[in-house]
Design a protein around this nucleic acid. Sequence first.
RNA 1: GCCCGGGUGGCCGAGUGGCUAGGCGGCGGCCUGCAGAGCCGCUUUACAGGGGUUCGAAUCCCCUCCCGGGCUCCA
Length: 481
Amino acid sequence: MQKPRIYNTLTRSVEVFEPLNPPEVKMYVCGPTVQDLAHLGHAKTYIFFDILYRYLTHLGYRVRYVRNITDVGHLREDTQVDRIVAGAERERLAPMELVDKYMFSFFSDMDRLNIKRPTVQPRATMHIVDMWEAISRLIEKGHAYVVDGNVYFDVSSYERYGQLSGIRREELIKHRVEPAPEKRNPADFALWKRAESGYLLKWSSPWGEGFPGWHIECSIMSIKHLGEQLDIHGGGQDLIFPHHENEIAQSECMTGKRPFVKYWVHVGYLTVRGERMSKSLGNFVSIKDALARYTANDIRLFILSSHYRAPLDYSEDVMEQFVEVRERVEGSYARVLETRAEGGAAGEAGLEFSHQVDSILEGIKASLNDDFNTPRASAHLMELVKTVNARLDSARRPTEGDLEKAQQAFATVFEILGLRQPELSGEGERLYLVIERLLRLREEFRREGNFRVADMIREALREVGVQVEDTSSGPRFRLLR
RNA sequence: GCCCGGGUGGCCGAGUGGCUAGGCGGCGGCCUGCAGAGCCGCUUUACAGGGGUUCGAAUCCCCUCCCGGGCUCCA
């Protein structure tokens, strides 16, 4: 079996993927801070890791996939206020009410995008005690120090600091924001912050009441749920520095084991008119808004269309292109199912057709093995569509074997890429029966040559989103979105 | 300022030295009562600009222009 190759941010090169302990794969992906609605930028990252998860599973790896929920400890730079606390004030909710609201909203978004649920989805607030045990260990080992109820990581105690981001140590002395004066070094970062009286989200600790720093949670949760060394750790490119850099420092100092993570994987930004989609720029589209307009498959095909490390520019014009793509892909698959339901000619799959389909599937695997080149994989998917359509259209009726081959190929590709299979009779059998009766009636008019009435029926159905198409084997219809 | 990525045909986007990316859109053909869908063909001597290396460069080197990102807020 050809092994996949993947780009490792740590080495800045594409490497052959060899997990530490095959066939087991330990994968950790940084989840969202649940303070607000998730947007399409989040979707790009999590859809990519979903494909990574699906593909490695398809190859036979046993993947343990952990994606956390950050529900505390993520400080805003300007105010030094926890983002959850800030969000709670904004919406006049208790902090944990806000967390519940957006955590469940996020889960729902992920399900609707057909993103598989990770093995474990731990929450930071469920690991407070684990965090301070780890912080205590770092203090004992001389990697952290306490000042007035705050605990900081001592960056100078870890000589490899900067390895992931490539930031040089002398650069770190500079700073944009006035650093907390009690820090020994401006680059030191908080492991535990003291909470002022009246602060809503706080826990008691060996250093007084407070709350954890943002970076420590991912070290703790990944080690707790996956062990001291991971195969894959990923997230958006924005997390390379400081979040992941700090995670490496903490984790390796804590466990004494190196490397903490074998492959660091980072996903490029979703942009709008060239600029990064973000809350602060106000150019974001929430996943819910996007799903009100487009299907999950539209969105997934769009995201698949560029390489995961490259930026991808969002616009409605481009989305419309992918609506067309999706209709073509789903249409081809639906025709296979329909033709199969009607019954194909007896016989095995044709040799040539069979070879064509197999080589397309090989092409998809080869593309994914090559640093998860999903644009090339989707080009192969279009090839499958074309090949299958041509077979369905040909004068020689497709055999049962052909149809089964085509259906299996689509099912495999859909599963790996996480595309939802179109359903032939989804919402309500009765709707379908009504449409069929109408079409039967229309056939009668057509036979009589009464095309005026036949076209009226077709147009009326079109107005309510039912596209009627006449084919040599009778009329078919599909529901438009 | 320092450090990373980028600039590919009307549009989106693969491609790291020779071999058709793919899609969307447009045009034409086949099919069809018409439409739609599908298939075939064309649009495609595209690679920011200028030098250089090479038998050969979108791909390697140098310079210039432009864009985005990171430098302790972000997936």
